[in-house]
Simulated assay, not measured.
Amino acid sequence: MAKVGVILSGCGVYDGSEIHEAVISLLALNRAGADVVSMAPNMEQTVINHLTGEPAEGASRNVLEESARIVRGEIQDIAKVDTTDLDALFIPGGFGAAKNLCDFAFKGPDCDVHPEVARVIKEVVTAKKPLAAVCIAPALVAKVLGDNKLAPQVTIGTDKDTAEALTSMGATHMSCPVREFVIDEKNKIITSPAYMLAGNISEAAEGIEKTVAALLKMID
């Protein structure tokens, strides 16, 4: 049974993991018989009111605790994860990937990545294990691997400004429709646009499910 790590970034599209993307990914992995190891950084986050889209004044939540909501409490602090136990890695999107796992949402190409998130990504890719990321999460991958001169090929769909930001971080951006995915064979990376382009949950699901299937097929 393949053991796949899933990095979550909170709970909710505006300040954490995009819940549709996370659940679709987890369901696809489970249906394929994979053993999922969910993880998230143990850190505080700012909170967005999902009714208004505005910051929730005075509110603070913990990324690990919020991520636990999605996986019914079955989650680890990413700092304690041993990547030698993993066969592959999957990163759903949502603004948490660009606010909590890194600060791309605020600094763009000059962003910093949470050190434990960077460690897990680098260790998985260095070990030639496959990695998949959807929605805005490929920006995180681009930063980590671009800094290590691996020049990953990734997609966030077709958004010109975001694509240029990824390119400036050392990645090669490939335009991709919502229901498809891009494979970087050299670095064993699979990416798909999901809600960067999706107009509804079924569009996001088709691309994510194909991405999960490609990820598991790439495991040695």
Score class of each variant (00 low, 15 high):
L150I: 14
M169R: 06
P138N: 14
K149V: 11
T167R: 09
D159F: 08
I156G: 00
A133W: 00
L140C: 11
I156K: 00
A163S: 13
K143Y: 04
V134R: 01
K160Q: 10
I156L: 05
S168M: 08
P130N: 12
P152W: 01
K128A: 10
D147H: 12
V144D: 02
C135P: 04
A132G: 08
G170R: 13
A133R: 08
G157P: 01
K160T: 11
C135V: 03
E164H: 12
V134S: 00
S168E: 11
L166S: 02
P138M: 12
L140V: 14
A151E: 15
A163Q: 09
K128H: 12
G157N: 01
P152Q: 05
A137W: 04
K129T: 05
G157K: 03
E164V: 08
D159V: 09
A139C: 15
V144Y: 03
A142D: 06
I136H: 02
A133T: 10
V134N: 00
S168T: 14
I136Q: 05
K160E: 09
G157S: 07
A151L: 15
G170S: 10
L150V: 14
G146D: 03
A151H: 15
D147I: 09
T155G: 01
N148P: 11
D147N: 15
A133C: 14
A165D: 01
G170L: 10
A132E: 01
V144G: 01
A139W: 09
K160P: 05
K160Y: 10
P152K: 07
S168W: 10
V141P: 02
I156P: 00
